[in-house]
Amino acid sequence: MTFLRTAWLVLRKDFAIEVRSWEILTTTLFFASSCVLVFAFAFVKEGRAVEDAAAGILWIAIAFSGTLALGRTFERERYGETLRALLLAPAPRPALYVGKLLGMLALLGIAEALLVPMVAFLFQAALFSRPLLLAGLLAGGTIGFAAVGTLFAAMLVRARSRDVLLPILLYPITIPVIIAGVRGTAALLAEIPDEATATMWIGILVAFDTVFVTLALWTFEPLMTE
């Protein structure tokens, strides 16, 4: 009970901070859309997008803006050393991780709500033909990415050169998640949407999410002790 309550408190606190300025949300959304545009310049040839580009661009934009948001979120906890204050609370420490993770998921969910229509519109991608499967892919991929990202961003708070170390650690470990997301989405975008393939990738994502979240909950406590 304390566990869920603590996670909820941390989530609500982050939300209360965010509504004061909407800083992280607006910058993340803007960055995500810039990503899409930058990649559009690279992958649109003679007015048409390269095959499978839409799926790749969608997921790269999610990963890049996610990294940016992670850095900013934990910078907030570093300023005033509030992360230490959280760690000093008698609540189980993994609950803090879960709270932070939920916040990241909410943020990335909003970013995806912008990115998906944008990619669909700019690349004539039929992203909405199988909405449930797409939602499954997005959820699975986002949880996997954010689970690793939140743990690493939290542990890098007290490391030197954390800005550059976060992407260095995060991308190699989360590439399998991105592969699953991109291939699953690409399967949905084929002439005839390939539901079987998409479902299989969702299954793989669920397996990844389970491994990542379990490992993160397990290692959070020893990682946070200096």
Binding site: V148, M155, A159, L165, P176, V211
Partner: peptide, 25 residues
């Protein structure tokens, strides 16, 4: 190399994640 003091722990988490996800990769 660049994580500063205490980076051994952070690195060990990296190795743990890398090893555990190897088969999935």
């Amino acid at each position: 190399q660049y994580g500063g003091p205490g980076s051994e722990k952070l690195a060990s988490a990296t190795a743990l994640f890398g090893t555990a996800t190897g088969p999935f990769v």
